[in-house]
Nucleic acid binder design. Sequence first.
DNA 1: TCTGGGGTCCTAGGACCC
DNA 2: TCTGGGGTCCTAGGACCC
Length: 432
Amino acid sequence: MYALVDGNNFYVSCERVFRPSLQGRPVIVLSNNDGCAIARSNEAKALGITMGMPWFQIQRQWPDVGLIALSANFCLYGDMSSRMMSIAAGLGPEQEIYSIDESFVGMHGMRGDLVARGHAVRERMLQWIGIPVGIGIGPTKTLAKLANHIAKTADRKPGSYPAGLARVCHLGALPASDFDAVLAATDLGEVWGIGQRIAAQLRAEGLSTALDVARMDAAMAHRRWSVTFSRTVCEMQGQPCIALEEAPAPKKEIACTRSFGQPVTELRGLIEAVSEFASRAAEKLRRQEGRAGQVLVFIHTSAFRHGERQYSRSITVPMRRPTADSGLLVATAVRALQAIYRPGYKFAKAGVMLLDLQEGSLEQHELDLDESASDRSGLMGTIDRINDRFGRSTVALASAGVARCERGWTMRQELRTPDYTTRWTDLPRARA
DNA sequence: TCTGGGGTCCTAGGACCC
DNA sequence: TCTGGGGTCCTAGGACCC
């Protein structure tokens, strides 16, 4: 058996822990640049605000409903996430951390009442960190995920499912007829692995529910769609095809990309942005002790501005040898940028990706008489430790721009809450 | 005026090889 | 009139996830 523990409206719930006045009100959390909604409280969902809806449109459509919007505070969410994961780990012997607010737990060989155990962990989560979660249990990860959806929906919309499935739902414990009835009441689009495209194709075939998917022929699903989708069908039938991954695999590519707070036309601004993105990506790379063999840089204008001239280009540059040196990666990224930059456009977004990643231990050395290319891994380690201790960009490369306030490209975050749990000066105060 | 960021996997088709 | 067969590797693009 597998369980999936998932925070309800996670980012909103994190904010509510430190601002209880947000309880019961429509609250949304906005993406970087305060661009669009990426988390919604139940009240905001009930209003009709959808995932990814642009903020300017939401303001226009719901001007007078007391809606509270907050800029995303990923420091806070990341810290709350690790607390949540350690409590979720109490559910069973194995754990996979699947995303910032979701964790699969392997419950193989566990005896006793798994539903009661789920409720106990859920209560502990509420009491210890104040985050409400839903727990789904099933014989495969896909069914656990579906059970989680049912647990949360039954909680939020009474009457949609039998009340006993709310908050903690164990699909593996249901009699066959009840199992079928619950799946028949669930849209196929809710199944993990079925996105918009496949959902539309299945509907065109006359299928509409999760039960219809569970009754498909897996071999046919492979022939007509893909192996990936045939695995989804098998998992819906209770046959595990997707393993629990306890240790996170090293990344195969690392990206740092951002939309700008304002359009950028000058090369100078783009150089600053690309320098910063490349060094952020290099930091992530060193954290997994990897080296990059290639650097990709892209820039593009905003596809949403229909009246304006559009330009979009990317370029991939190989490194002479794989490296994790910020200086080399930044210099390469800037050279790549210069090759694709064209004046006269309003650039909206840029990004750097590190590709062809390899393990640091496999480094190939070469006879090198050029001192400028000497090994600076010690220096990089020192920079990383300083920035870990004193905060991001305490030490940075000068090409990323020194006067932060003058950089027009940095993102807008006008509605950001304090870093309650990760910065001494932001600690909440308790009054007697 | 204003529309996020970071990933993975699979497939098809072309290049290339013998 | 006639023009092989089989395999691998790489890349771009699609689809999916949160």
